[in-house]
Design a protein around this nucleic acid. Structure first.
Length: 232
DNA sequence: CCAGACGTTGTT
DNA sequence: GTCTGG
DNA sequence: CCAGACGTTGTT
DNA sequence: GTCTGG
């Protein structure tokens, strides 16, 4: 799960939400704004434990610092909270390189028979919410430096159960500071990940146009009727 | 000791 | 089926 | 996550 | 880098 999201708020709204500022030179890589169809490999805003006063722009898809193969990032877009402490690729990062991944919605595909239909899920009590993530600095053999991140996933809460069996680890606002606290041991940090209250979330069908990463406009986040399978 | 993997999702 | 790209 | 490619030789 | 398997 969690291979597609949205972040349709502008830079100013993000700065106010996280009480942090962008570096102007990094902003150039953040594109498009707003993004109605965030996909793996996109450069997106994150707030890191090492520099929480600023919003950095990192690439979605974790590259472990020891990796020689850049392609492994395609398989590292998610990290399971249940096993993150045990995995070579994640254990170091969850100890000292945690981050917040801002979203204003995420997409999940619900399987019904042969068909997979996309849903958008949002929080109703927060305009922008944070998903728990981890990040890495990677250097290619040629010396190219890339900063990447992975989104942590967890079992579904009440509202997600009918749609999919995984969901992103949405943090309660009051847990965000702790998640970024490097003094907090990883074992305790992952306990901050709990069920987001289902009555503060809502899910609705969206057009299948979201399937294609080439599509990116405001109509992607519009609701379509549940019983309409053919027109979109 | 060295070599080789290091991941998730979904589907079977 | 499996990998790569977005 | 989904979509789209997946190959070589030789010629322009 | 670090763990697992042989």
């Amino acid at each position: 799960m969690c291979g597609r999201s949205s972040l349709t708020k502008n830079e100013k709204e993000l700065e106010e939400r996280f009480n942090a500022t962008f570096y102007s030179d990094e902003l150039e890589s953040y594109n498009p704004i707003p993004n109605f169809n965030v996909a793996p490999t996109h450069y997106m805003p994150v707030i890191t434990s090492s520099d929480p006063e600023h919003i950095h722009i990192f690439r979605w898809g974790l590259l472990p610092f020891w990796s020689k193969d850049e392609k492994i990032a395609y398989k590292m877009i998610n990290a399971r909270v249940e096993t993150i402490l045990e995995k070579n690729s994640f254990k170091k990062a969850v100890q000292s390189r945690r981050c917040l991944v801002p979203m204003d919605g995420f997409y999940e595909w619900k399987r019904s028979g042969k068909e997979k239909l996309p849903y958008r899920i949002v929080t109703t009590d927060q305009e922008i919410f944070s998903v728990a993530g981890i990040w890495e600095r990677w250097k290619s053999p040629e010396g190219k430096e890339i900063y990447t991140f992975s989104v942590i996933t967890k079992p579904p809460n009440e509202i997600m159960e009918g749609i999919h069996d995984r969901m992103p680890a949405i943090l309660l606002p009051e847990q965000e500071k702790l998640w970024l606290d490097e003094e907090l041991p990883a074992q305790e940090a992952i306990q901050l990940i709990t069920d987001y209250p289902a009555n503060n979330m809502k899910a609705y069908r969206v057009s299948k146009r979201v399937n294609s990463v080439k599509e990116n406009d405001k109509t992607l986040i519009e609701a379509i009727p549940e019983n309409n399978n053919t027109l979109f």
